[in-house]
């Protein structure tokens, strides 16, 4: 984090506004994930509807962040850490918007599940929700605080989430032959778990962009975590 302010106060304001909008998007995206989880586990259709309704605001913020970032680059020609932070903000907003879209997908599937009685297997998805939410929250925190130590943990944890997702899908698939009446529900749950896995991927992207912004190290597509 920079310890001194820019001489040009309008530049400082523009950077602050950009950052605040990304953090606002983050809050909304986290809230959408929490509402999607509550919608499923507490069988609350209103929470699902809230997720779907909030998505428009998140989409608008993505457009605004892009516009603000481009204006900063045009007007102020940022260099070094300023340039990296502007680019990180724009890339993070894309990942937040995609995560929010996954939450919308989850909410739509949950609404279908709520038309029927809850099946016991629904509760098996809770650890996946927990892990995805924790990953997403920590990636955003790492971005907000430029915490590369925290950001460095995200990749390995995302791999664990991938494993959990695969195990969950395999388990439900194995149950299908004996539970023909629940196949539709199982499929919805498998897709919900897949959306959570995708949210983990967005979190990983946010963490990688944070690491680059702070350290200038590009850790994308590296084999080791």
């Amino acid at each position: 984090m920079e310890s001194t302010r820019h001489i040009l106060t309008s530049f400082e304001s523009a950077l602050d506004n950009l950052r605040q909008d990304v953090l606002l998007m983050s809050s909304l995206a986290i809230r959408s994930l929490e509402n999607a989880k509550a919608g499923l586990l507490e069988r609350d259709e209103d929470k699902c509807n809230t997720v779907i309704a909030d998505d428009g605001e998140i989409d608008d913020l993505e457009i605004r962040v892009d516009s603000e970032g481009i204006e900063i680059m045009l007007r102020f020609h940022p260099f070094a850490s300023d340039l990296r932070n502007v680019i990180a903000a724009m890339k993070t907003s894309v990942n937040l918007e995609r995560a929010a879209d996954q939450c919308v997908g989850i909410a739509r599937r949950v609404r279908k599940l709520l038309l029927h009685e809850q099946i016991p297997e629904t509760l098996r998805i809770e650890p996946i929700f927990q892990m995805a939410a924790s990953l997403f929250h920590d990636a955003i925190q790492a971005y907000a605080e430029s915490d590369i130590e925290l950001a460095s943990t995200i990749k390995a944890r995302d791999k664990e989430l991938d494993v959990l997702n695969r195990e969950f899908a395999d388990a439900l698939t194995d149950l299908m032959p004996q539970n023909a009446g629940h196949i539709r529900a199982f499929i919805e749950l498998i897709f919900i778990a897949r959306s959570l896995e995708r949210i983990g991927d967005q979190a990983k992207n946010i963490a990688e962009d944070t690491i680059y912004a702070v350290t200038v190290k590009d850790v994308r597509h590296t084999l080791k975590s």
């Binding site: 820019h6 001489i7 102020f76 850490s81």
Partner: peptide, 19 residues
Amino acid sequence: IFANPSNKQTEDYITGRFG
């Protein structure tokens, strides 16, 4: 120099934190 200066004074100058 302009993408990743080694010296904080350089970074502060090129990013407009003094000058």
